[in-house]
Design a protein around this nucleic acid. Structure first.
Lengths: 339, 339
DNA sequence: TTGTACGCGTTATCAC
DNA sequence: GTGATAACGCGTACAA
């Protein structure tokens, strides 16, 4: 609770001197006074006000990250990547859950603007034809004009740099894997309606099926990114035979839901049907799910690094896109078509 | 990037007037000037500096939460609880991963002190006989003297209020469930060595076994809180027959590891052996794991609420303990002893 | 090498 | 109703 003035007084020096020793300034200070100041600070339990510091230096060491839901492992891995580089650089991570609501995203962005965050990372996907998108874009632009760096981790027209994985290619690759295994009638459980990510993954699936001349046996069914959605979609599939040769879910969690629905129906995986997901979250490893590994941690880390490395005030507004590579991870839920 | 002075100038009023309309002061303002100020603020894209605000009001609307690892669902659920109430109250959550290192905990606490956080929540467990504990306690005390509220989500002598679940009772209850199912030779896969949480859960197991006159058939084996640890511990169990009647893992993730080791060894669950965990994370539902549900979300939410509700400067230093209730969740990995 | 003084953006106190 | 002005705690020219 003591301030610099008190430390200075206790050490018998001027505030500026105390300031200089306490913030590692390069300004020359005699060893003696330096020691006195440090001792006084220690004795008083001095805690430098990052608030005042940020106010005068016009830039806080706060780094914001907007996720849909931190409980979703997809986002917690990203957040971990962000926080690791933030912490190493002496920054602190501000986290906000926006539950996929653009309005909430706008709101949280404003809040982080108010705290003069060094940057804000948008981890979640947006919607196609989102009526609120223009408002968000405007808020992002204002933030940028203020010197706040924005980075999006999904392809999204926010007017800020994008650091992401190629979702469409990932979906293409997992589909190709199944096709190469001899599967022809493949069902794709889609993500939540309206999301750009949903659209991209579906397109990747469709593109591959089309390239393999399997467009007629491709089947897209409504789903979602959670367990329940994957489970329900698969139940519907089971209820309307014949069963497809394989099921690809828009993400791992839905794939696990599919797996369980199949198991409950006593349908052998991968004997009777193959199942695959996308993301490669920890749960995929637990259940031996074939999937595509997305560089989530790296996306978060790289976005954070981009913000910290970019000189304050520089190049805001550039909208470069960086694509990090993904990787197919074959495990036990897929096998060569038996029949 | 525009400040209050600029808004005031643009609106042709004094800063104090602009301030009054822009921060919802109860001070009377004529409708005309109010409109002018609002218009000017809007036009200039004014963003009130939460930094300056916090500086003058001597308390920010920042809420810190220290977790071991946000990727661990145990902690992400807690973080969600914290952020939900923080956001609703206009606060923003600062998140830090401390990887179970007391030194890191101290370091991050200092950082949050510097930002004059309204409070800091310690989500992770500490160690028994931790040599660094005194330093942490001192840091917590200093933070409190500064008006920062600390709350621990585990039983831990930090000199701050504790809001938690009764880990020991939870372990007792899950053990009792297995005992009541007829199991006698029960193995307990412990958590990471040295952690208070590990100790509590083990004690709960041992207490129940002892109460059931099963002390001689109780068996504790070293493990950990992750999948790999549960897997490895179970492999060791399998390697030294006879197999126990049941396995209880210190948490759900380790239980899933145990489940997989058993499955790979073609040992039927729950036919030949029952398996249970503790926590009731989402994965437990996926695999049908019998477990004990801990009020993680509520712990985070209640801790946050406690901090926001407590009048600034008041009652810091009280060290009350609040225990939230847990609940047994029987699922498919446990069954009555067959033989 | 050390000290003085101003400004960062707000709020609050006191006049008018 | 409205307007000066003094803090809040710190960094940093500029001076000594």
């Amino acid at each position: 609770m003591s301030s610099l003035v008190e430390v200075a007084r206790a050490a018998g020096v001027a505030v500026s001197t105390a300031s200089r020793v306490l913030n590692g300034s390069s300004h020359p200070i005699s060893a003696a006074t330096r020691a006195r100041v440090i001792a006084a600070a220690e004795r008083l339990g001095y805690s430098p006000s990052a608030l005042a510091r940020a106010l005068v230096s016009r830039s806080s060491r706060l780094l914001g990250v907007l996720v849909s839901d931190i409980v979703n492992p997809y986002f917690s891995v990203i957040a971990r990547g962000v926080d690791d580089v933030a912490t190493r650089a002496g920054y602190v991570t501000m986290l906000s859950n926006v539950d996929r609501r653009t309005a909430t995203e706008i709101n949280r962005l404003q809040t982080m603007r108010n705290y003069r965050a060094a940057g804000v990372i948008f981890a979640g996907s947006g919607y196609v034809d989102d009526p609120e998108a223009p408002t968000l874009v405007k808020a992002v632009r204002q933030a940028q004009e203020q010197g706040i760096h924005a980075v999006s981790l999904t392809v999204r027209d926010l007017g800020c740099p994008v650091i992401t994985a190629d979702s469409q290619a990932a979906a293409y690759d997992i589909t190709d894997h199944l096709v190469s295994l001899g599967h022809r009638r493949i069902a794709f459980i889609e993500g939540p309606p309206g999301m750009i990510a949903t659209h991209q993954r579906r397109e990747g699936f469709l593109a591959c099926m089309s390239d393999a001349d399997l467009a007629e046996t491709a089947r897209c069914i409504p789903g979602g990114f959670d367990y329940e959605a994957g489970h329900a979609a698969t139940m519907r599939l089971i209820a309307r035979p014949p069963l497809p040769d394989a099921i690809i879910a828009a993400n791992d969690e839905a794939a696990v839901g599919a797996l369980n629905a199949l198991r409950q129906a006593r349908i052998d995986v991968p004997g009777e049907i193959s199942v695959a997901g996308i993301d490669d979250l920890r749960v995929a490893q637990f259940v031996g799910l074939t999937t595509v590994s997305l560089p989530l941690y790296e996306m978060g880390a790289m976005a954070a690094r981009h913000i910290l490395d970019t000189a304050p005030g520089a190049d805001t507004g550039d909208a470069t896109t960086t694509i990090l590579s993904h990787r197919l991870i074959p495990r036990e839920t897929t096998a060569r078509r038996s029949s």
